[in-house]
Amino acid sequence: MKSAVVVFPGINRERDMARALKLISGHEPAMIWHAETSLPKDTDLVVVPGGFSYGDYLRCGAIAARAPVMASVRAFAGQGGLVLGVCNGFQILCEGGLLPGVLMRNARLKFICHDVHLRVERSDTPFTRGYNAGQVIRVPIAHGEGNYEADEETLKRLEGEGRVLYRYCSPEGEVSDVSNINGAAHSIAGIVNDRGNVLGMMPHPENHVEDIMGCTDGRGLFAGLVAHLERAA
């Protein structure tokens, strides 16, 4: 799996992401600066990592979403290429119109930085095939604006089309207001676009991929992508 990690000023999770991609795919990802106007040929996966692009000025992800490189990312997604946005990357993809909805201030206003549990809603997608449907995984979150909101019609469509891939839950896999850490609509932690090739998620799977991190539950996401691409090749 050849991946490209897009880097904006103020992003700070790109090296964690690059390390996880290298570890699991065996290939060093290309780091693509925001002012670039093209992606490397043969890119299999574009990752928009987490951080605080442009200092979260205006709205989280708003300015990064209009950076030159995003035109290439949009074109890549338009051709069916796989795009993964994590945390600020999710916010950027929403601001850029690659995913519906918006990430609002956490309902209880606090920046939250600790592990959460996620329920994997289905396993038949490139972004979840490393897991079983219904499996509960533990990954960290670190955000102040992760409260996913969209209008009723959009939420209905996301649910109806099975596009909610990850949901905040209890360690036992129960979804409730208590486990819904940031107040997101329908406890949404991660969604895909209508074509299923663009995933945005607030939690950081790249931070749970090695034993030294205390948990390797995040590996499945990347291993699943590698397996998907190998099968497609």
């Binding site: 709205r59 708003a62 609002m104 909101e149 209008d151």
Partner: peptide, 9 residues
């Protein structure tokens, strides 16, 4: 439309 407002919200 392009930047100052997110017309979704």
């Amino acid at each position: 439309d392009k930047l100052l407002a997110n017309t979704v919200i």
